[in-house]
Nucleic acid binder design. Structure first.
Lengths: 253, 253
DNA sequence: GCACTTGGTGTATTAATAACACAATAGTAT
DNA sequence: ATACTATTGTGTTATTAATACACCAAGTGC
């Protein structure tokens, strides 16, 4: 990925500015055309795939670090972000530790260190994201959850853990505001839940339950133009939504 | 807490053996005489209070580190331990960063670094714990959750977050095996739940629900000798318990 | 025996979840 | 225009889970 000079510059910069031994990796979920998508990066030359990640500045809160990293990859600010697990096996970064060993001795090679990584997951509105590769990578792109490329290191595990966390959170948190466009139909929202949970839900029961949460506003106008019956448009009631985030919902799927 | 020579020795040892910038803090919950207890340490001289904590060896998985730290404080091995949050505000360890600044310049002073701390909570059987202070502390002792001393740094926040996590987990995990003695009565188990949730539960409904989980075995013999009617003794069915840990329970409190 | 405390069990009520059927609408094909 | 079809909206019933509540049993102290 790096040539020697790039590596030396990167390592000098990293040693000076970042906390050692700590990285952040992000699982960015988007939702588009009925599919749950995940943002991945393709390493230059190597061609291997990674989750977007980075390091923590020496005087930066970790949540801000995650935000900064994702702003670089998506163009978005104020992303819905949640820390979910620390991956701390000393073997986890072993494949990386060997990298560049011909270029730089371990003491100077940032990548020769052991790294704990803090896993964050993010929920974003697909259409607002402008996928942008970082300096190591040649490509930043969405992949269908059902069709992910093989990822390096433990990134597949990180993704799985993020998804498990998201599924659990569905039980006591409203989810959707960050993944859906401003206005959406009930069947679209249902598709999101079905995709996350990977199971079919009953249309009528879903609607009743969702409305009972009291976090949706129904628009005056249905969506015209499509084939078939015009569905109502809904948007989230932000006040009630925020409140539900704090208070939690009851019941589970 | 340390005199100068102790400090120098500690720092030399720490720099050589531990990952920098990372610490682990543990909230150890025990249950005794109807009270939820938390293990705390009292710093030498200073007299301030802390949660048990420590650092991660350079080649040690973080779960093992937490286990090692707790073995030192409790004498127990194979503790039920769960990582629950990383506290990563750069201000969080500020009060410590000033410590010993007259003894050692920042570059050599381990405590002058910024530390992220990984929060773990542990559930242990109170009577098996042998509280043991570490080298910084003069005392290691149980405190009632309702009667905790003021703790340094963000340790009160860490405790609160651990408790919130524990309460949430009650919704989809069996809890008790690690906190209760081998055999216990239903009212005793109920007291545990009531203490964690900080609310009264209905005796009869609690029993029905608990039994419905299918993780309890009722002993042939009731507990004799006490005053009043002899209660049945229960123990956890470990197979079903482990399975429930994996599969999750349904419903919430 | 009698009062009192603690523990065990059952039943009626209410709320939540799951299962299911039919009517309305906007396009498409003829 | 008419029938057809896919899709959305809504209501009703059955099942299951949660809650509230009342009685009986066993041991202690008097």
């Amino acid at each position: 990925m790096f040539n020697k000079q790039e590596l030396i510059d990167f390592c000098n910069n990293a040693r000076e500015n970042f906390l050692s031994h700590i990285s952040i990796d992000c699982v960015v979920f988007g939702f588009h055309e009925g599919q749950l998508k995940v943002l991945v990066l393709k390493m230059k030359n190597e061609g291997s795939w990674y989750l977007p990640g980075g390091f923590v500045l020496k005087n930066e809160p970790i949540d801000e670090a995650a935000n900064r990293i994702l702003k670089d990859r998506t163009g978005l600010d104020e992303i819905f972000l949640q820390q979910f697990h620390v991956f701390g096996d000393p073997e986890r970064s072993r494949p990386h530790n060997e990298m560049y060993k011909d270029y730089l001795p371990p003491a100077e090679n940032w990548f020769a260190n052991r790294f704990l990584t803090i896993g964050y997951y993010a929920l974003v509105d697909f259409v607002h994201v402008n996928p942008t590769p970082d300096s190591h990578s040649e490509l930043c792109a969405w992949y269908d959850l059902a069709d992910m490329p093989n990822m390096e290191l433990d990134h597949a595990t990180i993704l799985k853990t993020a998804l498990d966390t998201l599924r659990l959170q569905l039980n006591y948190q409203p989810i959707g505001y960050n993944l859906m466009p401003k206005e959406f139909t009930m069947p679209e929202l249902q598709k999101l839940y079905e995709t996350i949970l990977n199971q079919k839900l009953d249309r009528r029961n879903f609607q009743r339950r969702m409305l009972a949460f009291g976090i949706l506003n129904r628009s005056e106008q249905p969506r015209k133009g499509g084939a078939h019956k015009a569905p109502f448009l809904y948007s989230f009631d932000l006040d009630n939504y925020q409140n539900a985030l704090k208070e939690g919902l009851k019941g589970g799927w």
